[in-house]
């Protein structure tokens, strides 16, 4: 068995991964900002309970693609999306779909920690409150505690839940934002370079957290750090100039990519 050829290993891995069902399917997704086209017919699927990393040089369209997954691009003027994206069979760009409900199912964590200028408790209970997920104070307390625990922040903040969230350190703020997203019980969590504003120790904590969250959520993460993609993800997609270059298992991607451009980027020849 351990004499298995490289090709056989790949096949085994593919089979393993292929067994995981798709959570979101993107078909021929193109995005235009006014006249400028930012994404060219991207076909990319996101597997359930998997961390999918989107990598590529700056301006390659990876964040743009991420934001199409919960229609955050809608908030940008002159942005137009074509193609089809489904979440569990539902076309998310269908005119009948409720964006509010979609964003409750597909949560988002941003590049810079952006806690609301409210208390830690209110930050976490914000989502459940607007979606009516809880009624009594006890329910809210429970959601807040569970979410903060899932985000690995509970022990650090349990004694100061009513202090402002903006008073936490950068890494704590980002984990608070993750707790805030988790509190709505989304199915998918999108993360747009969640560690780019954090120091290495805070980054390690967030990466560990992503690893744990995978058990309950489907995660799509945009990252600039190749090491981070290798550490946290199972699948990796490489974007270049608005095109999807390659999508593969992370292990294969970083050892033996199919596409020359991926290899060059990973080796640091451009970027």
């Amino acid at each position: 068995m351990n004499m298995m050829s490289e090709a056989a290993v790949e096949k085994a891995l593919d089979r393993k991964m292929n067994a995981v069902p798709f959570k979101m399917i993107g078909k021929d997704v193109s995005v235009y900002y006014g006249e400028k086209r930012a994404l060219f017919d991207v076909n990319l699927n996101v597997r359930e309970n998997t961390v999918t990393a989107l990598i590529g040089p700056s301006g390659c369209g990876k964040s743009t693609f991420l934001r199409t997954l919960n229609r955050m691009n809608d908030t940008i003027d002159n942005c137009r999306v074509t193609g089809k994206i489904t979440l569990d069979e539902d076309d998310i760009y269908d005119p009948n779909i409720d964006v509010v409900e979609l964003r409750a199912r597909v949560g988002m964590v941003f590049q810079k920690p952006n806690p609301f200028p409210k208390s830690i408790y209110e930050n976490v209970s914000y989502g459940p409150r607007i979606h009516g997920l809880a009624r009594s104070k006890a329910d809210f307390d429970q959601i807040v505690e569970q979410s903060l625990q899932k985000a690995g922040l509970w022990n650090e903040v349990k004694d100061r839940l009513h202090e402002p969230g903006t008073g936490l350190s950068g890494g704590q703020q980002q984990r608070l934002c993750i707790a805030r997203a988790v509190a709505v019980s989304p199915e998918v969590i999108l993360m747009d370079e969640p560690c780019s504003a954090l120091d290495p120790i805070a980054t390690a904590k967030v990466e560990e957290l992503i690893h744990e969250l995978r058990a309950n959520f489907t995660i799509v993460i945009v990252t600039h750090s190749m090491q981070q993609a290798a550490r946290v993800s199972q699948r990796t997609a490489m974007f270049h100039l608005g095109n999807l270059v390659e999508e593969n298992d992370t292990d294969k991607m970083f050892t033996n990519p199919d596409d020359q451009r991926t290899q060059d980027y990973i080796m640091g020849r451009f970027g």
């Binding site: 949560g107 941003f110 952006n114 709505v184």
Partner: peptide
């Protein structure tokens, strides 16, 4: 900051 609006919209607030 726009980030605050995005944060809220990203949570599904109208």
């Amino acid at each position: 900051p726009r980030a605050l609006r995005d944060g809220s919209l990203g949570l599904g607030a109208t």
